[in-house]
């Protein structure tokens, strides 16, 4: 009987041992959720001024929209112009060294260069206004910003993460009045979620279409 395997099969055999190792390592990496590490989740971002969302949102009770005005009106939530900081800081903490960046920006008419925390890939089309209009709260995606002294990324915004809600919006949509509420209670949400999806006219069957986000 002639040999079934040629001599080259030895290399195939050795190669497959190596590849098995590679696949094993990949599986370990994926199952151990490298997302948090690769996306810097939970790491406070370096910013020109140490702005505390916790202080402004939780302790002072300022609404998200006071600074992020276009969140209901357009794709981008908006960063406040220095003028907005100056509404209060023209009278409060006017000499604080922490606010020197703000004063310099205001007096020299140059914008403050904040570092972007969440940067979606350019092939994803995301619109804040439609999410807010359909009952998705800021806190659903951005995490408990009201607890963050320095802002960090709570979620990695990977596609699988977006899909969790696009497949099952009932679990997340809130009534209109609760969208900017950091302490919304989801405990009685089971029937309400279904009702709200109906009420908002959310077309669930469309939400997972490719072109919803990739246009």
């Amino acid at each position: 009987m002639p040999q079934i395997f040629s001599k080259k099969a030895n290399y195939l055999a050795r190669g497959s041992i190596v590849m098995t190792g590679v696949v094993f390592v990949l599986i370990v990496l994926i199952s151990h959720n490298v997302t948090a590490y690769t996306h810097d989740l939970g790491v406070a971002f370096q910013q020109p001024a140490p702005f505390s969302h916790k202080h402004h949102v939780k302790e002072l009770g300022i609404d998200c929209r006071y600074c992020h005005q276009s969140v209901e009106k357009g794709p981008f939530a908006g960063l406040p112009p220095t003028e907005t900081c100056y509404t209060c800081h023209s009278q409060i903490w006017t000499n604080s060294p922490l606010l020197k960046v703000v004063r310099d920006s205001y007096t020299t008419n140059t914008p403050i260069e904040w570092n972007r925390v969440n940067n979606l890939p350019d092939f994803v089309y995301f619109d804040h206004s439609v999410h807010v209009a359909k009952g998705v709260s800021c806190y659903t995606c951005h995490g408990q910003v009201d607890q963050m002294n320095l802002l960090y990324k709570e979620n990695a915004f990977e596609m699988i993460w977006c899909l969790r809600c696009h497949r099952n919006p009932e679990a997340q949509v809130r009534p209109k009045s609760e969208i900017f509420n950091p302490n919304y209670d989801y405990s009685q949400h089971e029937t309400l979620g279904k009702q709200l999806v109906e009420q908002y006219g959310i077309k669930k069957e469309q939400l997972t279409n490719c072109w919803i986000c990739h246009r």
């Binding site: 290399y11 050795r14 190669g15 590849m19 590679v22 390592v25 890939p121 350019d122």
Partner: peptide, 23 residues
């Protein structure tokens, strides 16, 4: 075989994302 499998491995891990990601 070993070199090429390492290459594939490197390509998977070190994906360059500067074409469609940063338009």
């Amino acid at each position: 075989v070993i070199a090429s499998s390492l290459l594939v491995c490197g390509a998977i891990i070190g994906c360059e994302r500067d074409d469609m990601w940063e338009q």
